[in-house]
Design a protein around this nucleic acid. Structure first.
Length: 491
RNA sequence: GGUCUCUUGGCCGAGUGGCUAGGCAGUGGUCUGCAAAACCACGUACGGCGGUUCGAAUCCGCCAGAGACCUCCA
């Protein structure tokens, strides 16, 4: 039951049973961020999608090597400039070293991911740290005859490759269509065809990031790093390659071509693509300028945000949609996610306090089977979450005495929620007040106030009881009366 | 222009040829001194028009609308 994971393979356009290349082991490569700006909501989609997959594979007891790169060189700014590196351009703007920019945004990215409880990959290689490997790959492609040198740059010969290979198989493109739709880009005159892409690019004198190569001073092409680094750390053939849908063409298509040209066969067996986060129905993206950074979500400082949203709310929001669907941002949707998640997490706390009876009136095995079925069906987290909410009703009913559970089932249910809510979905309970001295004192003060209010209530002194409640509320402390007594929380 | 995808109830979002998705909001109830919170219960749906079928929101066609990629992008 646990081991019938199916995943949607972009190559075949259907769900396939996942069978690793080597029994019990999984190699997976995911395209990481370009570190020239703060991470925004869109960046969380692949990070959380593949974190979910990584966590689930580990839960299934696979030994996983998860590689996610940091792109710190190699992408062009746009077609208007002179082939200048994105990172170099920003660096000049800020008048700092390119590597300083890279370091800053890498740090920010890792920091944001940690807040989102995204597990760090096993290897997080950088493009600048693998220039030698990339040059070696370019050499191999030249030797294989699928590339040519021009003016100190090396280009991949797409038309030649397409004669005996299927260029466009991943993205569903036909070479004839592509040939009709090429645009004027930098270096076009150096290329034999508009479809050809750079494997190595000659650096202009003002270009800051530059390395020596057999073809002169330059920098690696846009798609080279993923081929070189996936091969180095996962081998010439590996299990899963992931990334955003927008990378399918040309990036992943070029990667496939590079690997085939250099190794004689394709590298990744399963290609997985997450869909986009939209805002007002349109893709949230760097180039459109309609993005909201994670930092802005966390502190609420953006015109479109009605409030701050915790990292866990963002994570739950992402997980409530299937990774292959678009997900539309709105305050209403995020607030719904926030409340729903609180209810789910609260139930996990209640679950720890349940006591066992002799008989079970609930079916824990059926719930467990449904949870695995959901995850095995192309890691369908929204379905999983729906089942977990059914379980919330079960937990609350037992807590209310409307249902009973025996000791074995209770242990199983507790394990189930630990596994699915915390280990697999990667949610974590919101920090219930840090345990420093101040919060301990605060807690003491609050206990005193609650006791005073309770005695006022006992004396039917409603004026005093309500004054305590209302005045605390006005300074942002909310009292909640429960069956077990009053509790408080900061709002 | 080319290729492809999507259109589900107030909002977000699953799924499927016939069997309740789920969450949030809303309504009713339980609890409470009152309220909040919490818990329980309950609607409303499958863009339009045709077709296939015993039966379609689910398959096919047309129309309308939205989007993605074709250029860096998660």
């Amino acid at each position: 039951m646990k081991n019938t994971l199916s995943i949607y393979n972009t190559l075949s356009r259907k769900k396939e049973v996942f069978e690793p290349l080597h029994a019990g082991k999984v190699g997976m490569y995911v395209c990481g961020p370009t570190v020239y700006g703060d991470a925004h909501l869109g960046h969380t989609r692949p990070a959380i999608t593949f974190d979910l997959l990584y966590r689930y594979l580990m839960h299934l007891e696979y030994k996983v090597r998860y590689v996610r790169n940091i792109t710190d060189v190699g992408h062009l700014v746009g077609d208007a400039d002179e082939g200048e590196d994105k990172i170099a351009k920003k660096a000049k703007l800020d008048e700092v070293e390119p590597m300083e920019v890279v370091q800053k945004y890498t740090n920010n990215y890792r920091n944001d991911m940690r807040k989102l409880n995204v597990l760090p990959p096993n290897i997080e290689p950088t493009a600048t740290g693998h220039i030698i490997e990339q040059i070696e790959e370019v050499k191999k492609i030249l030797e294989a005859g699928y590339a040519y040198e021009s003016n100190g740059s090396v280009y991949f010969d797409v038309e030649k490759f397409a004669k005996n290979h299927d260029y466009g198989k991943l993205s569903g493109r036909r070479i004839e269509d592509l040939l009709e739709n090429t645009r004027q880009l930098d270096g076009q005159n150096e290329k034999r065809s508009g479809l050809d892409f750079a494997l190595w690019k000659n650096a202009a004198p003002e270009h800051l990031m530059r390395w020596p190569s057999p073809w002169g001073i330059g920098f690696p092409g846009w798609h080279m790093e993923c081929s070189a680094m996936s091969t180095k750390y996962l081998g010439k053939e590996f299990d899963i390659h992931g990334g955003g849908m927008d990378l399918m063409f040309p990036h992943h298509e070029a990667e496939i071509a590079q690997c085939v040209a250099s190794n004689g066969h394709e590298s990744a067996r399963y290609w997985m693509h997450n869909n986009m986060v939209t805002i007002n129905g349109q893709k949230m993206g760097k180039s459109l300028g309609n993005f909201i950074t994670l930092e802005q979500f966390f502190n609420g400082e953006h015109d479109l945000l009605e409030q701050a949203y915790s990292p866990m709310t963002i994570r739950f929001f992402i997980l409530q949609a299937h990774y292959r669907s678009t997900l539309d941002f709105s305050n209403e949707a995020l607030q719904a996610a926030e409340k729903g998640m609180e209810r789910l997490l609260k139930a996990t706390t209640v679950l720890q306090t349940l006591t066992a009876s002799n008989e079970s009136t609930v079916d824990v095995n059926a719930l467990e089977a449904k949870c695995y079925a959901a995850m095995n069906d192309d890691i369908n987290s929204p379905i999983l979450i729906a089942h977990l909410f059914d379980g919330v009703k079960m937990i609350n009913s037992i807590s209310d005495g409307k249902a009973t559970i025996n000791a074995d089932d209770l242990a199983k249910l507790q394990q189930l929620y630990q596994a699915f809510v915390f280990d697999i979905l990667g949610l974590e309970a919101t920090e219930a007040g840090s345990s420093n001295d101040d919060s301990e004192k605060m807690d003491g003060v609050m206990q005193l106030l609650l006791e005073m209010r309770q005695s006022a209530k006992t004396n039917k002194d409603w004026a005093t009881a309500d004054k305590i409640r209302d005045e605390l509320k006005s300074i942002g402390i909310e009292i909640k009366d429960t069956k077990e007594g009053a509790t408080w929380e900061l709002k």
